[in-house]
Design a binder for these strands. Structure first.
Lengths: 333, 333
DNA sequence: CTGAAAGCGCTTACAG
DNA sequence: CTGAAAGCGCTTACAG
């Protein structure tokens, strides 16, 4: 049999109430009694049952995290950050994905209704945000991470996408490049629009116009990066730089440029976005706009934890700073 | 107020016992009564509280997963597989890492003592396995994934590492290569010893001896792959192939070979191990021994779920098949 | 086939 | 400062 609060109470010669007070560090316990109880607890190796505590208190000291898929290259860092923060707070992290489509969401909704966790972290919601809204309305604390659709109803954590675009543009300008190709992600994502806007803004501030034909829509895959380069070259447009909205796309661009006989960075400087581990391993290694992914996961978790803990919902959304990581594909001037 | 089983019972004009029986699909309920109760449940949108069910039943329909770190390149796939299987079974997955060292393990142990989950998945245990043994002994079902130390006390899921080594060797032999460099991982890992043994065995079966100087110990980093190649070349040994025990190491080898002016695959054919997504993006794309990571995660979760469900612990350990994925770094003969 | 009651292991007013 | 009792929302023998 596992040891319960009753066992501790009996061994200490006090009531369960008193043991509970010691456990929860309530002030009104006699110091001597408290010490004795603590000693018994240690001796018996007693740990309160999380299920019983949860039922009695009406909360589970657990938060949920819903992500579309775990295999996106930057999910790992975000997840690690969230796990670290949640763990540090003594909470547990219950992980869900929408990997199996409708069925996933049905099961997930059941867990929400069952009050399996006290708050929810949602990563990059697209379709599933529709399902999250009513949960939030029903009282579930929610924090979004990298909200691509810019849903204003939720607190969220993101990164300075616009500034990231500016950083890329300024670096290319400093390298003397004036004819950049921009390979975007799907324009329905807020982050994509912000990265593009920041990039173009910085060019214009330097008196460099951006020919719309130099903006090619991609879908964040390596293949789409390749195709974007091929398309531009086929159109006969000059290129002396590439700014891809993610590292995978930039890797595709590197490949297409090599295939076309263009040297990187001599002929074409290439900058990516994200700074996934893989970025340091391309040939040449990729200059890229670093997203503080782990910090974003941590910040989101801490925001949620504060919210769950009953604190007033803090700043509705925070944007952590991007920074340019310079490697050989677009070296220092 | 949230709706409870008492509300349903009242609305249906039955006792809580009966509602509970319907909920848990016990046989002994009148069909008509059951239908009526189900209708009320649907109308009220009632979902049983997981905390209350857990307390009453003594189990939480949740499994834990402990991983050293989430940012290893192949963790994502394993985790996704585990999440999928756990989710399909209607369970929740509580995620823990040892990322914060001792403190992580202390907190984790507390969760175990608190009976926060019914079973545990442990990924690639090294140090933490010492902490898991007593938990297992105390009755916690445990399944290991990719147990590098070959701990016999636990059921585990791994891959056919020896066969993977053989596949690599046979492919290189078919390409006419006779002087391979093997870049291993830390030899304390069982998987490393198996990969090497399988590789050497296949060579010898073809009458090709393996000079021990051609085996260089790495540590699974890209840098160690680079260094292994540099070392061998510095020693003046001939090389016409590389078999690295992971893809990162193979990527390092590619880089060092290029730096040394060796063409891949013409001069040196290169084979990696793992088949992480990045393997398709190297230059040239990497031929590698594919580990069925997602399937391993799924299999481990299903093994654990069966165990938790009270089924007799099935085969003590399963090894899922590796297969060779041929890309340009070591093309078809 | 169905219900009343006890029990799961805690917390928390309420008295004292 | 401390204890007895009710309550959290279920499940499960035990009767009938």
């Amino acid at each position: 049999m596992r040891v319960t609060i009753a066992d501790v109470a009996r061994a200490a010669g006090v009531s369960k109430s008193t043991v509970s007070r010691v456990l929860n560090a309530k002030a009104e316990v006699d110091a001597g009694t408290a010490d004795r109880v603590r000693e018994i607890i240690a001796r018996l190796g007693y740990v309160p049952s999380s299920r019983a505590v949860g039922l009695a208190r009406g909360s589970s000291r657990t938060v949920g995290m819903l992500a579309p898929s775990l295999t996106w290259p930057w999910m790992s860092e975000v997840l690690q950050g969230a796990v670290d923060a949640v763990e540090a707070a003594g909470y547990g992290l219950l992980l869900f994905t929408c990997n199996r489509g409708r069925e996933s969401m049905t099961r997930f909704a059941a867990q929400v209704s069952a009050r399996a966790f006290d708050g929810l972290l949602v990563v990059e919601p697209e379709d599933e945000i529709g399902a999250v809204v009513p949960m939030h309305r029903a009282g579930l604390p929610v924090v979004l991470i990298d909200d691509r659709a810019r849903h204003p109803a939720f607190p969220s954590v993101s990164t300075t996408n616009g500034l990231g675009g500016e950083l890329a543009a300024r670096h290319l300008l400093a390298l003397g490049r004036r004819k950049p190709l921009v390979i975007t992600g799907p324009p329905r994502f807020g982050c994509v629009r912000e990265r593009l806007a920041g990039f173009v803004r910085a060019l214009e501030e330097h008196g460099v116009g951006h020919d719309p034909r130099r903006t090619v829509e991609g879908d964040f895959t390596e293949r789409s990066g390749e195709e974007a380069v091929e398309k531009l070259l086929a159109e006969g447009l000059d290129v002396d730089a590439v700014f891809a909205h993610n590292d995978l796309g930039a890797a595709g661009a590197l490949r297409a440029l090599r295939a076309a006989g263009r040297r990187v960075p001599e002929d074409v400087a290439v900058i990516g976005f994200d700074d996934i581990p893989f970025a340091a391993c391309t040939d040449p290694p990729l200059t890229t706009v670093h997203q503080p992914l782990r910090a974003m996961g941590e910040a989101a978790a801490n925001l949620l934890l504060a919210h769950v803990g009953g604190h007033p919902p803090p700043e509705t959304s925070v944007a952590l700073p991007t920074e340019l990581v310079v490697r050989a594909s677009a070296p220092h001037p």
